[in-house]
Design a protein around this nucleic acid. Sequence first.
DNA 1: AGTCAATGGACTGGAGATAGACCAATAGAC
DNA 2: GTCTATTGGTCTATCTCCAGTCCATTGACT
Lengths: 239, 239
Amino acid sequence: MVVQANEAVFRPVRAGNPFEETVERLLQAIKLGVVVPGDRLPPERELAARLNVSRVTLREAIHALTEAGYVESRRGRYGGTFVNEQLPKPRRTPAKRLARDLADGLDDALTLRFVLETGAAEAAATRELSDAERDHLERCLADTSAARLADYRRLDSRLHLAIAEVTGSPSLTSAMADVRMRLNELLDAIPLLERNIQHSNEQHQAIVTAILAGDPAAARQAMQEHLSGTAVLLHGFLA
Amino acid sequence: MVVQANEAVFRPVRAGNPFEETVERLLQAIKLGVVVPGDRLPPERELAARLNVSRVTLREAIHALTEAGYVESRRGRYGGTFVNEQLPKPRRTPAKRLARDLADGLDDALTLRFVLETGAAEAAATRELSDAERDHLERCLADTSAARLADYRRLDSRLHLAIAEVTGSPSLTSAMADVRMRLNELLDAIPLLERNIQHSNEQHQAIVTAILAGDPAAARQAMQEHLSGTAVLLHGFLA
DNA sequence: AGTCAATGGACTGGAGATAGACCAATAGAC
DNA sequence: GTCTATTGGTCTATCTCCAGTCCATTGACT
């Protein structure tokens, strides 16, 4: 059927219950490097308000993440919920699950990612960036380059997210965070090689340079080449 | 603050209650032309399942749309809920509301739309399209060209959505539908001129031609020009 | 040593959403 | 003309989630 617009507009209003969605969101913050080990999450009352869930629900989600080894809570003033220094290793997803995701929506996610990330790179290069924004971008780039293998995926995600941030469009940033979470699960199933990382770092450098230079076409082009690498990697591994 | 990633990842898990979200989704289907006057919505039981809400909630939403004059329900076999032939006119949003939306997120929405729509046009032109898909695209183009002024916005949206559809990425289609709903409210505040429509139709023609010809660069370029028109229009009217 | 503001932890009543069963009407099939 | 499958309409018991309140703990500051 060619008319898949129905499918798009009559899709689920809510992916799951508030508890699950909240867990997912907190995991997003951790896995995409928005909060790093040692960081404190916002206080429960504030965070619950921002997520638009009740404090009870948020607390249940935090409890689940505590059990899973992602965070720890301390009471009292200057207490809070902190991201663990030692994060749990991502479990290798069973091949069966991967095959399902593949059939389901690998191409879907890859297409959306391509559109969002190349568009973000271009938009970022188009904008007039503040000094703070330029610093932020370079900081993320340096962090990623210096990352050890175990932290690479997280800091890589953080860098890509930073590019979205400097477009000045929160919606774009959110959309990129979402699609990246979908793909990271698949990427975790693929071994990470030093060689790939080095190549990746060079491409990151080219992308950021183009953005800072205010060259939209070059930024888009560099991002495009960068993405095609993981795209063929995923297709090769899963197809 | 440069780090708006927190804002993006700690955004609300749910925009509102299921009832409101369901109403919004049904309005999306109608206002973006996914279902047209005379069409029948899927049976309540099936639709509720697809939207992942209870039938009670869906019925409340349908009831609200009935009161607002968008749909009518008929009982019995071969009954159902039908989209009215005469749709309610969109209310002119008060200028005060517009100003708020402007400050809030006009640039945000425009940026995201630009990224999604130019990306979709390029992706559509890159893909190998089936005959059904080509027909669908041309059909939507013809419908838009033939549209009367009162129906123009709806059929225009439908055409843009069709471009997203033929990328084969449902997520991309959904994202475009969402951002378009955000902008349509603002666009409804701007008078539609015959002259603009004619120009718009020519651009539509160019976009579709480039997509059917399999020319990604031209498709992106044509879409970019098309969008810049409404972007400056909005900025001019609201700024 | 004492104070206190900020934070996590725990409880309760009520509002909203759900699942499921059942009723009522309708138009085509025979 | 009757039958019947399909669809909207209604009701109830249950569950989840929420808003609000109060308690417990902590550590910097005085």
